[in-house]
């Protein structure tokens, strides 16, 4: 078994909590994405598992063994860095064999293992090139091969796709997933890109201010964000601050739901642009189309609507063909299925 357990891990950099009492259980063979904005502690968490940072308090276990305080080189890990961090003086083949050589494996075994990895990361033809002679995507696949060479129990990936252009990014993302499932290693994947996290991970841990706010499978996270931060960070959402009347909040005829228990006067309602139904002249809350943005299959409408005596703005996504007849300036009626609206108390 080679899961990773974090027990109440705290890391303080000069009085700032980079990690604030984080506990997380990652089971063997699972890929967990750490998702959050920059400065949320996701990279610090990853580096703590690698031993590149020492937690101020708490314990880290890999495969049931307490590795807190164990030097990086003695941990059963492999790591892929955002900036590749390939050794410029070594060829692709030498980069991949480096971790095996420093472990003094027999030469025959090294040759065999390196050939196997070159196959897995598909760098056979580039094996004898130097890092500056290959593309960014190839460099990152080489880094992946190097990280996997000693068959680590845990693979750590620190924003591995951030330095690559969009096309290469999605292809390599799927490639990383394929290889991770092929070699059946446990993996922790740090990213600030929510679609990348949802596409690649078994579970996503949303982090904010050094804390893990929610850990869930991508569909559950998308549909049922547990916190306001998770709701705003994952996917694009409308956020409307609404007054509470008779224990309910609502937007005219668009929707009405029970107010969250903890709130007294106002609450924030979150709902996705794709859950806003837009029609002309039928039942619903009136709104004015301020802008129309064609996105291919869908069109995004920027709508202005009255909330009490204020004007609120919200986004609605609809199939482009259905949006074709709408003009900027036309008045529409919006409705939202109440079961797609989530409400959170307004912070005091």
């Amino acid at each position: 078994m080679s899961g990773v357990t974090l027990e109440r891990v705290t890391k303080t950099f000069s009085q700032v909590h980079a990690l604030d009492d984080v506990s997380l259980e990652i089971v063997s063979g699972e890929l967990v994405a750490l998702l959050g904005p920059s400065g949320c502690g996701k990279t610090t968490l990853l580096r703590s598992v690698a031993g590149l940072e020492e937690p101020t308090s708490g314990r880290i276990l890999i495969g049931g063994r307490d590795v807190t305080g164990v030097p990086t080189r003695e941990r059963p890990i492999g790591m892929v860095f955002q900036s590749y961090a390939l050794f410029p003086n070594l060829t692709v083949r030498q980069n991949i064999s480096f971790p095996l050589e420093v472990r003094h494996r027999p030469p025959a075994e090294i040759r065999e293992r390196v050939a196997e990895l070159l196959e897995i990361v598909r760098l056979g033809p580039q094996a004898d090139r130097y890092p500056h002679q290959i593309s960014g995507g190839q460099a990152q696949r080489c880094a992946l091969g190097r990280a996997l060479a000693p068959s680590p129990e845990v693979l750590l990936l620190d924003e591995p796709l951030s330095a690559l252009d969009a096309l290469v990014r999605t292809r390599l993302r799927d490639e990383i997933r394929r290889i991770q499932q092929l070699v059946k290693t446990t993996a922790i994947y740090v990213t600030h890109d929510q679609s990348e996290a949802m596409a690649i991970a078994d579970r996503v841990a949303v982090m904010n201010h050094g804390r893990v706010e929610q850990v869930a499978a991508p569909p559950a996270l998308y549909e049922e964000p547990a916190t306001e931060f998770a709701a705003t960070f994952v996917g694009s959402r409308n956020a409307l601050e609404l007054p509470i009347a008779d224990g309910r909040i609502g937007l005219g005829a668009a929707f009405s739901i029970a107010a969250p228990a903890a709130s007294r006067e106002r609450a924030i309602a979150f709902f996705r642009p794709e859950d806003v139904q837009v029609a002309v002249g039928s039942m619903g809350h009136p709104a004015v189309v301020e802008m129309k943005i064609f996105l291919g299959p869908t069109t995004r409408l920027h709508l202005a609507t009255a909330v009490g005596d204020r004007t609120a703005r919200l986004h609605a996504d609809m199939p482009s063909r259905a949006a074709a007849h709408l003009e900027e300036g036309s008045v529409v009626a919006v409705r939202v299925d109440p079961q797609h609206v989530r409400a959170f108390p307004v912070d005091a």
Partner: peptide, 27 residues
């Protein structure tokens, strides 16, 4: 980028003198 290369060397399991001899010096 010697800091990153050193860290990469550590995650590869290399002891400090190997990192210095095989990675730091040549670069």
């Amino acid at each position: 980028g010697i800091e990153r290369l050193s860290e990469a060397g550590e995650t590869c399991g290399a002891p400090p003198w190997q990192i210095i001899r095989r990675i730091v010096f040549p670069n």
